[in-house]
């Protein structure tokens, strides 16, 4: 799964769903754990929106990382690479 543009907000560690709604990030984390699916956030889209992992937080001198541990940051090259080895590419957008 490759998240880019506003889709990277899915990977926020601190977003909290209202009590009567399910947490999307928890569902993604569960899917990843159950099926071994890689959850990748586009690093350019993420950093632009203030979503940082430990490495980026250090690099930008930010007080903390805020990406959920089930997600990793990577460049658009990973989207292209995944597309090259996949039989189907499906996009969901707003």
């Amino acid at each position: 799964m490759f998240f880019y543009h506003d889709g990277v907000l899915t990977g926020s560690a601190y977003a909290r769903a209202p009590q009567d709604e399910e947490s999307k990030v928890q569902r993604w984390a569960a899917l990843s754990e159950q099926h071994g699916t890689d959850l990748v956030l586009c690093i350019a889209s993420a950093v632009k929106r203030g979503l940082l992992d430990d490495s980026e937080a250090t690099r930008h001198a930010s007080p903390a990382a805020n990406i959920h541990p089930a997600f990793t940051l990577s460049g658009l090259g990973q989207l292209i690479d995944a597309s090259a080895v996949s039989d189907r590419l499906v996009t969901f957008g707003n």
Partner: peptide, 10 residues
Amino acid sequence: VALAGAAFEQ
């Protein structure tokens, strides 16, 4: 994405 694709020679 176009530039990334070009870099990966797709």
